[in-house]
Design a protein around this nucleic acid. Structure first.
Lengths: 329, 329
DNA sequence: GTCTCGCCTGTAAACGATTACAAGAACGAT
DNA sequence: ATCGTTCTTGTAATCGTTTACAGGCGAGAC
């Protein structure tokens, strides 16, 4: 038994398909018409076909959020915020994982052909010419949560990593920790590069020298652990800043294994202030880079652009704050 | 400048739309035809419209995965597994959060009208008549990752909670812990009910009595913390089993705050063996309920049913294992 | 040389909705 | 009674594809 179409409903109700469509879309109709159509719809269990509808109206009412790694809790925060905004606007959210490679991101944007979604919200780890090009050529509006060149002319919402770094170093200095090490993610990623620079600048502001800088293979828990031995070897640090919470938690595990107390021997600061920061032990002091707000603002930007594709691109910067927990003294 | 359609390509290539479609779909055509079409496609930057295509072929090549809470790391594991299977089959995965209420789940299934996706994979927290009914009436194939009555006649993949519980109690008993408490999630949920029963049965098998049973408000970290005071008040336990990892980690925080050592004073066992179990401190011994395998099997079931909707429903049970870490002695 | 058989290509009819347009009904005004 | 206006409803075109069907052309067989 195949599903009823609008024609079936029309037949059952003894009216035309146009009338059915009108009733369903809330356009003016007589009391009796509404009544008859609704009864027929009810009786047949009719549900409009989204494909046909979107073909005709030119919209799918779907938006895509593309993130690098669904296992990174910072994206959970962002996702929740985006979900809230877009669902309030009547869209459904499609979440896809791109993986860490820029080619995958390009493929995603290219493949986001007309018809899969009405807009794309992407948070790219790595950005190159190809990606920018594919974003500009994309059939549907794209908003980037992250950093792309201003000349690309796309809406972006990004964090202020340098300022965030400064907050972290400020706090550590205030706690009397000045021998600060840094565990970064891959420096060839957008956040990696931003945080490396931010770290350097922040230390300079305080007139400090970096005690050690290591670069993890990626932004994961496992990479955080793997980065630890090299760091621990070089003694002489009393604080570590990590480029995200996963790295920080991974590192803390190994610090504990090496017999170092957090925060007694080493203070640890993460970045992202994700749910994991609260859940880790000890709870992790973390730089809140505003992931929820970035998600919200990005979603709003996307909706606005869908509404009017000619508006001039905006570049929003969300300010960080510091969530102090027990991994710092 | 609006996007080119297949008609535009046909005009540019000087052939018919049918030929363009055939070339694009790899149907037999002459060398020259392929050549001309490809050149035109290239030149115009043509991308087929997914809406129109799916309207005609009756498929969207999208599958939906509906989970209760995107912040629960067990779903990350499952999601990864599902993603892998469905993307290998040429589908894209749409992830949506249902929230904890059964009415939301029903609404989702109902709204999964023909046209949004070709299939639905749902992991419901709560199941009632309405949900089962809506699943049976659903326009597209549905596979449930969880437990619904056999008479519902739907494909299901579920965990073996009782066996998992038994593994946990076995292990604790082996470690010499026999005064075991239990922190459950809401007992009116499917996993909550299963685990409560499993816990009781497992204790009985070992001839033990429950020292304390508390029920958290939901399956979150915050609820795990909130459940702690009541538990700590009743002294006399030397082990706690928690209904999932988030609860366990939340609880461990409060145990530490109360001055109790894990695993010295209290052994803690979680369930799900999610990434969080590995990341928590101390790393959490956790019952692996096979979330990755469940995801994989469920995805396979869904693909098979899409292929042939007449096959008899299968009910797969995935066997648990125990991942022993340092939260138990 | 004609007939048949294949192969390729084009024409046109779907898929299931929305919506412009037209036609008919009802109603009040003249 | 006639006309014009407004409101409702139906007919049919349309969105961009895929695909059944038919036509055209060349090759091989007699």
């Amino acid at each position: 038994m195949s599903r009823p179409t609008i024609a079936g409903v029309a037949r059952a109700a003894g009216v035309s398909v146009a009338s059915v469509s009108r009733v369903l879309n809330g356009l003016p109709a007589t009391e009796e018409m509404v009544e008859r159509v609704q009864r027929a719809v009810e009786q047949l269990g009719y549900v409009p076909d989204a494909r046909a509808r979107s073909l005709k109206v030119g919209r799918t009412f779907q938006l895509t959020l593309a993130v690098a790694d669904v296992g990174n809790p910072v994206y959970v925060t962002m996702m929740r915020a985006v979900e809230e905004v877009v669902s309030a606007a009547g869209y459904r959210l499609v979440v896809t994982a791109t993986g860490p490679d820029v080619v995958d991101e390009v493929a995603l944007v290219r493949g986001m052909a007309r018809g899969y979604a009405d807009g794309l919200l992407i948070s790219p780890l790595r950005v190159d010419e190809d990606l920018v090009k594919s974003i500009r050529e994309c059939e549907v509006p794209v908003v980037v949560a992250g950093n792309v060149p201003a000349k690309a002319g796309v809406d972006t919402v990004r964090a202020n990593s340098p300022k965030g770094m400064l907050l972290a170093v400020d706090h550590l200095a205030y706690c009397g920790r000045t021998r600060i090490a840094f565990v970064n993610g891959p420096a060839d990623t957008v956040p990696g590069a931003a945080r490396a620079k931010g770290f350097g600048d922040a230390l300079k502001t305080h007139g400090l020298e970096a005690v050690a800088v290591t670069e993890a293979a990626d932004f994961t828990f496992a990479a955080g652990r793997a980065a630890a031995p090299e760091l621990v070897k070089q003694a002489g640090f009393d604080a570590v800043i990590c480029a995200n919470d996963l790295l920080a938690v991974g590192l803390m595990h190994e610090l504990a294994a090496a017999g170092l107390d957090v925060p007694g021997d080493v203070a640890v600061v993460g970045m992202d202030d994700s749910e994991l920061a609260e859940q880790s032990f000890p709870p992790l002091t973390s730089v809140n880079l505003g992931s929820a707000e970035r998600g919200r603002r990005a979603a709003e930007l996307l909706l606005a652009r869908i509404d009017d594709n000619d508006r001039t691109p905006r570049r929003i910067v969300v300010q960080p704050s510091l969530s102090i927990r027990r991994s710092t003294p």
